[in-house]
Protein backbone atom coordinates (compact mmCIF):
# COMPACT_ATOMS: atom_id res chain seq x y z
CA UNK A 1 0.00 0.00 0.00
CA UNK A 2 1.30 3.43 -0.81
CA UNK A 3 1.02 6.40 1.47
CA UNK A 4 -2.49 7.74 0.81
CA UNK A 5 -1.53 11.46 0.83
CA UNK A 6 1.57 11.32 -1.28
CA UNK A 7 0.32 11.16 -4.85
CA UNK A 8 -2.54 13.55 -4.22
CA UNK A 9 -0.16 16.14 -2.85
CA UNK A 10 2.35 15.68 -5.62
CA UNK A 11 -0.28 16.04 -8.27
CA UNK A 12 -1.69 19.15 -6.69
CA UNK A 13 1.75 20.64 -6.64
CA UNK A 14 2.29 19.63 -10.23
CA UNK A 15 -1.01 21.08 -11.27
CA UNK A 16 -0.16 24.29 -9.50
CA UNK A 17 2.95 24.39 -11.68
CA UNK A 18 0.99 23.78 -14.87
CA UNK A 19 -1.56 26.36 -13.88
CA UNK A 20 1.21 28.88 -13.38
CA UNK A 21 2.61 28.08 -16.78
CA UNK A 22 -0.77 28.33 -18.44
CA UNK A 23 -1.75 31.51 -16.68
CA UNK A 24 1.52 33.05 -17.76
CA UNK A 25 0.20 32.61 -21.30
CA UNK A 26 -3.14 34.34 -20.71
CA UNK A 27 -2.09 37.05 -18.35
CA UNK A 28 -2.50 40.41 -20.04
CA UNK A 29 0.35 41.96 -18.12
CA UNK A 30 -0.04 45.70 -17.83
CA UNK A 31 2.39 47.37 -20.20
CA UNK A 32 5.01 49.35 -18.32
CA UNK A 33 4.57 53.05 -19.09
CA UNK A 34 7.97 53.27 -20.70
CA UNK A 35 7.06 50.53 -23.18
CA UNK A 36 3.80 52.32 -24.04
CA UNK A 37 5.47 55.68 -24.57
CA UNK A 38 8.21 53.97 -26.56
CA UNK A 39 5.55 52.49 -28.81
CA UNK A 40 4.11 55.98 -29.32
CA UNK A 41 7.61 57.25 -30.17
CA UNK A 42 8.08 54.46 -32.69
CA UNK A 43 4.71 55.16 -34.29
CA UNK A 44 5.51 58.84 -34.62
CA UNK A 45 9.00 58.09 -35.98
CA UNK A 46 7.65 55.62 -38.54
CA UNK A 47 5.09 58.17 -39.71
CA UNK A 48 7.74 60.85 -40.09
CA UNK A 49 10.05 58.54 -42.04
CA UNK A 50 7.16 57.53 -44.32
CA UNK A 51 6.35 61.21 -44.99
CA UNK A 52 10.03 61.89 -45.66
CA UNK A 53 10.23 58.98 -48.09
CA UNK A 54 7.13 60.20 -49.91
CA UNK A 55 8.61 63.69 -50.28
CA UNK A 56 12.05 62.43 -51.27
CA UNK A 57 10.74 60.04 -53.91
CA UNK A 58 8.66 62.86 -55.39
CA UNK A 59 11.67 65.19 -55.28
CA UNK A 60 13.84 62.51 -56.88
CA UNK A 61 11.29 61.97 -59.64
CA UNK A 62 10.96 65.68 -60.37
CA UNK A 63 14.70 66.13 -60.33
CA UNK A 64 15.82 63.10 -62.29
CA UNK A 65 12.82 62.42 -64.50
CA UNK A 66 10.98 65.65 -65.28
CA UNK A 67 7.44 65.10 -66.52
CA UNK A 68 8.31 66.38 -70.03
CA UNK A 69 10.76 63.60 -70.67
CA UNK A 70 9.64 60.92 -68.23
CA UNK A 71 9.16 57.32 -69.34
CA UNK A 72 7.88 54.80 -66.79
CA UNK A 73 7.71 51.10 -67.67
CA UNK A 74 5.69 48.63 -65.58
CA UNK A 75 5.39 44.82 -65.60
CA UNK A 76 2.23 42.86 -64.86
CA UNK A 77 1.17 39.22 -65.03
CA UNK A 78 -2.27 37.82 -65.63
CA UNK A 79 -2.67 34.18 -64.56
CA UNK A 80 0.76 32.90 -65.61
CA UNK A 81 -0.18 29.26 -66.00
CA UNK A 82 1.82 28.86 -69.20
CA UNK A 83 4.80 30.94 -68.17
CA UNK A 84 6.90 31.26 -65.06
CA UNK A 85 8.80 34.52 -65.19
CA UNK A 86 12.53 34.59 -64.43
CA UNK A 87 13.76 37.85 -65.89
CA UNK A 88 12.95 40.79 -68.13
CA UNK A 89 15.36 42.80 -70.23
CA UNK A 90 14.21 46.16 -71.51
CA UNK A 91 15.76 47.98 -74.45
CA UNK A 92 14.92 51.50 -75.54
CA UNK A 93 16.11 52.33 -79.07
CA UNK A 94 18.32 49.24 -79.02
CA UNK A 95 20.02 50.23 -75.79
CA UNK A 96 19.60 47.99 -72.74
CA UNK A 97 18.17 50.12 -69.93
CA UNK A 98 17.08 47.44 -67.48
CA UNK A 99 17.85 43.80 -66.69
CA UNK A 100 15.70 42.48 -63.88
CA UNK A 101 15.89 39.05 -62.23
CA UNK A 102 12.83 38.18 -60.16
CA UNK A 103 12.68 36.50 -56.75
CA UNK A 104 9.94 33.99 -55.96
CA UNK A 105 8.22 36.48 -53.70
CA UNK A 106 8.17 39.10 -56.44
CA UNK A 107 6.76 36.66 -58.99
CA UNK A 108 4.14 35.63 -56.44
CA UNK A 109 3.24 39.29 -55.84
CA UNK A 110 2.86 39.76 -59.62
CA UNK A 111 0.65 36.67 -59.83
CA UNK A 112 -1.60 38.07 -57.13
CA UNK A 113 -2.17 41.36 -58.95
CA UNK A 114 0.80 43.52 -58.08
CA UNK A 115 2.36 45.67 -60.79
CA UNK A 116 6.10 46.28 -60.74
CA UNK A 117 7.72 49.51 -61.87
CA UNK A 118 10.58 48.08 -63.90
CA UNK A 119 12.16 51.25 -65.19
CA UNK A 120 11.96 55.00 -65.03
CA UNK A 121 14.02 57.13 -67.38
CA UNK A 122 14.04 60.05 -69.76
CA UNK A 123 13.15 60.15 -73.45
CA UNK A 124 13.21 62.95 -75.99
CA UNK A 125 10.01 63.79 -77.80
CA UNK A 126 9.48 61.69 -80.93
CA UNK A 127 9.32 58.04 -81.91
CA UNK A 128 11.19 55.38 -79.95
CA UNK A 129 11.28 51.63 -80.07
CA UNK A 130 10.79 49.64 -76.86
CA UNK A 131 11.80 45.97 -76.84
CA UNK A 132 11.16 43.66 -73.88
CA UNK A 133 12.80 40.23 -73.74
CA UNK A 134 11.33 37.77 -71.25
CA UNK A 135 12.98 34.59 -70.02
CA UNK A 136 11.46 31.91 -67.85
CA UNK A 137 9.87 28.50 -67.97
CA UNK A 138 7.24 28.05 -70.64
CA UNK A 139 4.67 25.34 -71.38
CA UNK A 140 5.79 21.78 -70.60
CA UNK A 141 8.56 23.07 -68.35
CA UNK A 142 10.81 24.20 -71.17
CA UNK A 143 13.14 27.17 -71.07
CA UNK A 144 11.37 30.01 -72.74
CA UNK A 145 12.61 33.27 -74.22
CA UNK A 146 10.35 35.66 -76.03
CA UNK A 147 10.34 39.29 -77.03
CA UNK A 148 7.77 41.98 -77.64
CA UNK A 149 8.25 45.40 -79.14
CA UNK A 150 6.38 48.63 -79.56
CA UNK A 151 7.10 51.95 -81.18
CA UNK A 152 5.95 54.74 -78.90
CA UNK A 153 5.52 58.34 -79.79
CA UNK A 154 6.82 60.38 -76.91
CA UNK A 155 5.21 63.78 -76.64
CA UNK A 156 5.49 66.28 -73.83
CA UNK A 157 4.25 64.73 -70.59
CA UNK A 158 4.94 61.43 -68.85
CA UNK A 159 4.69 58.28 -70.93
CA UNK A 160 3.45 55.18 -69.05
CA UNK A 161 3.98 51.78 -70.63
CA UNK A 162 2.88 48.39 -69.30
CA UNK A 163 4.59 45.13 -70.25
CA UNK A 164 1.81 42.60 -69.87
CA UNK A 165 2.09 38.82 -69.75
CA UNK A 166 -1.23 37.06 -70.28
CA UNK A 167 -2.11 33.40 -70.69
CA UNK A 168 -3.64 32.48 -74.00
CA UNK A 169 -5.81 29.40 -73.28
CA UNK A 170 -6.56 28.69 -76.93
CA UNK A 171 -2.90 28.38 -77.93
CA UNK A 172 -1.82 27.26 -74.45
CA UNK A 173 0.99 29.75 -74.73
CA UNK A 174 1.73 33.00 -72.94
CA UNK A 175 1.03 36.26 -74.76
CA UNK A 176 3.41 39.15 -74.34
CA UNK A 177 2.09 42.58 -75.10
CA UNK A 178 3.12 46.16 -74.54
CA UNK A 179 0.43 48.66 -73.76
CA UNK A 180 0.60 52.44 -73.61
CA UNK A 181 -1.36 54.12 -70.82
CA UNK A 182 -2.97 57.49 -71.25
Amino acid sequence: MSHPDLPERSVKLLLAGILMMVLAGVATAAEPPSAASLDEDIQSLKQDVIALNRDLFILEEELLYPANTQLAVYVSLDVGEFFELDSVQLKVDDKVVSNYLYTRREVDALHRGGIQRLYMGNLKAGEHELVAIYTGIGPKGRDYRRGASLVVNKALGTKYVELKIVDNPSSEQPDFSIREWE
Binding site: A72, Y74, S76, R105, E106, D108, A109, L110, R112, G113, G114, I115, Q116, R117, Y160, E162, W181
Partner: peptide
Amino acid sequence: PSAAQDLQFGEALFYYFQ
Protein backbone atom coordinates in the same frame (compact mmCIF):
# COMPACT_ATOMS: atom_id res chain seq x y z
CA PRO B 1 -7.83 43.70 -53.13
CA SER B 2 -9.45 44.07 -56.54
CA ALA B 3 -7.37 44.10 -59.74
CA ALA B 4 -5.43 47.31 -60.25
CA GLN B 5 -6.87 49.79 -62.70
CA ASP B 6 -4.25 52.40 -61.87
CA LEU B 7 -0.61 51.49 -62.37
CA GLN B 8 0.44 53.17 -59.14
CA PHE B 9 -2.18 51.26 -57.14
CA GLY B 10 -0.80 48.05 -58.67
CA GLU B 11 2.68 49.15 -57.64
CA ALA B 12 1.55 49.53 -54.02
CA LEU B 13 0.00 46.05 -54.26
CA PHE B 14 3.31 44.67 -55.55
CA TYR B 15 4.88 45.53 -52.19
CA TYR B 16 1.74 44.68 -50.20
CA PHE B 17 1.78 41.12 -51.48
CA GLN B 18 5.42 40.83 -50.45
